[in-house]
């Protein structure tokens, strides 16, 4: 039972930040696409802005990996 809970916790640790990242990127992405239509020179800045929320899911992944190592 404990193993199941740990696996579930690992899934939540990576799943919830993944959803949060997806939501943040969808908002930034649509705004970024609008910006690029008017100012293509901001491509680098937009890539950076879109990439920033990804750290959440990477941190979630690290936590999930640490939980799974405990199993």
């Amino acid at each position: 039972m404990e193993k199941v809970l740990l696996a579930f916790a690992a899934a939540l640790a990576v799943g919830i930040p993944a959803l949060a990242t997806a939501w943040a990127q969808s908002r930034i992405g649509s705004a970024g696409a609008g910006t690029l239509a008017e100012k293509p020179e901001l491509t680098g800045t937009i890539i950076i802005l879109i990439a920033i929320p990804e750290t959440m899911v990477i941190l979630g992944f690290v936590v999930a990996a640490m939980i799974l190592v405990m199993i």
């Binding site: 990804e54 750290t55 990477i58 941190l59 992944f61």
Partner: peptide, 12 residues
Amino acid sequence: FGNIISYVRLMA
């Protein structure tokens, strides 16, 4: 430190 942890993506 957050920046360093971000490099875990290389492995992920």
